[in-house]
Amino acid sequence: MDTVESGSGTWRPHETAGDGAGTPGLVDWLDELGPQGLADLLTERKALVFRGFGVSPEAIEPVLARLVPDRLPYVHGNSPRTKVGGNLYTSTEYPQKYTISMHNELSYAYRWPTRLTFYCEKAAETGGATPVLDGQLWLDALDAEVREAFAGGIRYVQNLHDGYGFGKSWQDTFETDDRTAVEEFLRESRAEWEWGTDGLRVIQVRPATTKHPVTGAEVWFNQADQWHPAGLGDEASAELYDILTPDEFPQYVTLADGTPIPDAYVEQIISRGLESAVDVDWRGGDVLLIDNVLLAHGRRPFEGTRRVLVAMSDT
């Protein structure tokens, strides 16, 4: 089995190529490497691509068991997804014509997964790459003015409806219809919340950066651009402004003290993130493992049918 260093002169994911042994060959390789060896390699390389093993939907479970043991539910997630198995989800169901900007999964939450595994069951006919981005490079790419503005943290606001409205319901977001369970989760998350006649309002203040627990690297680690109206695009933003005030949006964001975030800051965060990213162009059967702190990810627009699944772990 070969390991392939992709690219020259710039960071790229570490690729392990199949040698015709199929999925059992990948499982054997992971067993030989062992959990600590895998953890060390992932920390060093930040992303690992497993290609050429022909992993089928029926054979993905033993692979996931080694890459993301103790898989996590997508509780408090804001992306539209479908649960297809035991804590295995569609990667996103956001309309395929749109780019999804760079982000770290659940970086707005009190706790987040440390690893993500993506499995390409079917590649799109055109486009649909998953761009990945070194969070330290993203932080360094931003103007000092932007970094300084976010130094005090970010205030996230969610308005989660009770079954009818814009965005996700609180039941879908927390994967339960038990209000007591939701309140306990939010209490442990050090969030503020308020029940209303139409649903649930959640407010959280989180830092804009974090440090990797092993390497100590400081990375840009938030979803301010995805929660800000300027990140929606002119058309979608205008439609929401026509019917709601910003604080009534399904999700909204300000600086920690409530100061509005200038559109220009959001546009810079989005553009510099996407410009610095490296695309993983999918082939059917590919598996991608990323360190969710060291690397952000996104999605390029696509045409045709694309099915990429994702599983998360804090191991």
Rank of each mutant, 00 (worst) to 15 (best):
E5L: 14
S8E: 11
G9S: 14
T10W: 11
W11T: 12
E15F: 02
A17V: 15
P24V: 06
L26M: 03
V27C: 10
Q36S: 12
Q36A: 13
Q36K: 14
L38R: 13
D40I: 03
D40M: 08
F53Q: 01
V68Y: 06
V68W: 01
D70Y: 03
L72K: 08
H76Q: 13
N78F: 09
R81S: 07
G85V: 02
T99M: 05
T99D: 04
T99L: 07
H103D: 05
S107Q: 06
Y108N: 13
W112V: 06
R115E: 03
F118S: 05
E121D: 15
K122C: 12
T126H: 08
G128F: 01
T130M: 07
D134H: 13
L137I: 07
L142R: 12
L142T: 09
A144P: 02
A151Y: 02
A151V: 04
A151W: 01
Q158F: 15
G163H: 01
F166E: 11
K168S: 13
Q171A: 13
D172K: 15
F174K: 04
F174H: 02
D177I: 03
T180F: 13
E183M: 04
R190P: 00
E192H: 10
E194I: 08
W195S: 00
E218F: 04
W220A: 12
A224G: 06
A224V: 07
L232R: 14
A236Q: 10
D247G: 05
Q251I: 02
V253R: 02
V253M: 11
A256L: 07
V266K: 03
V266R: 04
I270K: 15
S271I: 05
A277F: 00
A277M: 01
D279A: 09
V280N: 04
D281I: 12
V287E: 05
A296K: 01
H297V: 02
R299P: 05
F302G: 10
G304F: 09
L309N: 03
